[in-house]
Amino acid sequence: MGSITYRKLGSSSWTSFLPAVAIVGLLGTHLTAAALGLYSSAPSVSVVEPLTGSSLEGRMQIAVRADDGPMGSGVRGVEFQLDSTSGTWKPLTLDPSSMTYRGTWEAASGTVGHHDLYIRATDYTGNHRTVYVTVNVSASPTRPAGVQVLAPL
């Protein structure tokens, strides 16, 4: 049989060894959680602006809060689309001061009537949640014939 030799390590060995163990342990924990499917829930999404049923003219402000929770992998991004989920998604920008994703859409470029604004939040493991609000795009106010708008002096 083989023999086992025990050696006492000095305190400096433990000091330099422990941070490496902590980093490997943290990385291993996240990899294990991802492999076991523990990051399988999609981020929660809350549309702050516009509210369902809003009537819009001109520029539509979009504000969304998304959170992947304490056990999630984190929100990678939030995007929006109008009237479809199969086209090109447009990214919203994170405002770090309020932790709100923001963007704009020119309502005047859309057709008059009801539209569904789809919002999608995706986490770092690829899970995504899509929500929508319905808004009404109104016609731009029209001016009576012969009325000119003058620029201020």
Score class of each variant (00 low, 15 high):
L51C: 05
R129A: 14
L82W: 06
S46Y: 01
S13H: 04
L9I: 13
G2F: 00
Q61T: 04
V112E: 11
V45A: 12
P141A: 09
T5S: 13
V135L: 06
I23H: 00
P152Y: 14
T111F: 13
E79P: 00
A108V: 15
V47S: 03
M1C: 03
L82E: 00
D68I: 15
E49P: 03
W105Y: 14
D68S: 03
S46M: 10
S11A: 12
G110F: 10
N127A: 10
G110S: 12
Y132I: 09
G74K: 01
P70E: 09
G2C: 07
D67P: 14
G87S: 06
A35Q: 02
V135R: 05
G146Q: 15
A107T: 03
L26Q: 10
L36Q: 00
G10H: 03
G77Q: 12
Y118K: 02
G77K: 00
E79L: 00
H128S: 13
H115Q: 09
G25K: 07
S55R: 05
G110E: 12
Y6P: 11
T142F: 03
G10V: 13
N136D: 09
G72H: 03
G103L: 15
A34E: 12
S55P: 05
A20H: 14
G53L: 14
A151Y: 14
S3A: 05
R129T: 13
A139G: 11
S3P: 01
K90L: 14
L9M: 15
P19S: 04
Y101T: 04
V21A: 11
V75I: 00
G58E: 05
T5M: 15
L27T: 12
A151P: 12
G103S: 07
A121D: 02
G10T: 09
S84H: 02
P152F: 09
G146A: 11
S98L: 08
G28D: 08
A108T: 15
A22P: 11
G2K: 09
M71N: 09
V75M: 04
T142V: 06
V48I: 15
V64Y: 09
S84L: 02
G110M: 07
A22N: 01
A42F: 01
A145H: 05
V137R: 06
P70R: 07
I4Y: 08
T93K: 15
V131S: 00
V135A: 12
S12T: 15
E57Q: 08
M71G: 08
P141H: 09
G53E: 10
S54E: 11
G113P: 06
T5A: 12
F17G: 11
T125P: 10
L153V: 13
D95T: 11
A22I: 05
Y6E: 09
W14H: 15
G10E: 03
K8T: 14
I119A: 04
D123C: 07
S40R: 06
G103P: 12
L82P: 00
G126R: 07
I62D: 01
E57H: 11
G77M: 05
S12L: 08
H115A: 09
G28H: 11
A107M: 09
W105C: 10
S86N: 11
